[in-house]
Nucleic acid binder design. Structure first.
Length: 309
DNA sequence: AAGACGAAAGTGGTTGA
DNA sequence: TCAACAACTTTCGTCTT
């Protein structure tokens, strides 16, 4: 149940108009833009240096979603150079200030707690700052839409993190996030799907290659093995071995084969543990890889070499 | 004895009527 | 909303090194 704003906070009117093209919800009675981040909340400009950033950022205030009040303080815009902004921008500020009072207590308290939790989990997983920031933004949106109701705060945090990881192509498995946050995998998956659907965030299916680097270092494999496994993955994609399969399983199998070829054998068990799948899955993927990609020769070659030593 | 292999039954999630 | 279905897991017995 999506329960985002249904009443205009300004005049209590329920006569709201949804402009899908602009992704805005506008109150027909007083003209207030009730919600303007409906679909596209990417910033549409890029900043190459601080000077450009100054010019292009619309509010000028350094803003961080990892601060519960978004770095704005309780009194929004009090000391900013408001005269530099045109009317529209100024109105935006006044609205923000009003909102700050209106929605302050409940949401702020929630955010404060949640973002602390988010930072904790994020640093536990050693996630890059950009991902932390993104997930904080997702969480903030989720709270504003009332998506947290009926769910535990922690699970929504975990879901936001997972979504942010996927978006930034630094995938962590559900298991890892589950371990770090203490939320059940199932639950994270559920809230993840829920919030991405409700917020209209599109996620690319995760790419097995994104997992290789991490698995490979966990197994202490050489750089050659690692790059070879990426080649194998590419071939596998061409042979359409990857679609519909779990990306971690495929990554694990590619790494396993590659390790065999380079004479750095790891047991299926070891690889399976690192990748968070079972040996059986690795075996299945491994079998498919051998059948389709003609890798057996190379494995035998290194086996023979081994005997010579 | 440990690891690899494969069969069979079970689980959770997606899909399509 | 329910049943069929695919991917993956668990478990266990057998074969290989």
């Amino acid at each position: 149940m999506s329960s985002y704003v249904k009443k205009c906070p300004e005049c209590e009117s329920i006569n709201l108009f949804i402009n899908k093209e602009k992704g805005e919800v506008i109150c027909k009675d007083c003209g207030l833009v009730v919600e303007d981040k409906l679909v596209d909340f990417e910033q549409e400009w890029r900043e190459f240096d601080s000077e450009q950033a100054e010019r292009k950022r619309r509010t000028g205030a350094p803003m961080s979603y990892t601060q519960y009040d978004q770095g704005l303080g309780t009194e929004v815009g009090q000391k900013l150079d408001l005269y530099k902004l045109d009317n529209k921008e100024r109105n935006k500020f006044f609205r923000l200030r009003k909102w700050q009072y209106r929605i302050s207590t409940a949401i702020e308290r929630n955010l404060k707690l949640a973002l602390a939790e988010l930072k904790r989990v994020s640093s536990y997983l050693k996630l890059p700052k950009s991902v932390e920031e993104e997930s904080a933004r997702i969480y903030t949106l989720a709270v504003q839409r009332g998506l947290v109701r009926g769910r535990s705060m922690e699970s929504v945090v975990a879901g936001s993190l997972y979504a942010a990881c996927r978006r930034h192509e630094v995938p962590r498995t559900l298991d890892e996030i589950s371990e770090a946050s203490g939320i059940e995998k199932k639950e994270i998956g559920r809230t993840y799907r829920f919030i991405t659907r409700e917020l209209g965030i599109s996620i690319l299916p995760s790419n097995p290659a994104d997992y290789i680097a991490r698995f490979s270092s966990a197994l202490k494999l050489s750089a050659e093995t690692q790059s070879r496994s990426i080649e194998i993955l590419e071939q596998a994609q061409k042979a359409e071995l990857t679609s519909g399969r779990g990306p971690t399983g495929i990554a694990a199998a590619a790494l396993y084969v590659s390790a065999l070829i380079h004479g750095e054998k790891r047991t299926q068990r070891e690889v399976a543990d690192v990748a968070g799948v079972t040996e059986v899955t690795i075996r299945n993927r491994y079998k498919e890889l051998l059948e389709q990609l003609d890798l057996e020769k190379e494995i035998k070659k290194t086996k023979r070499k081994r005997k010579d030593d």
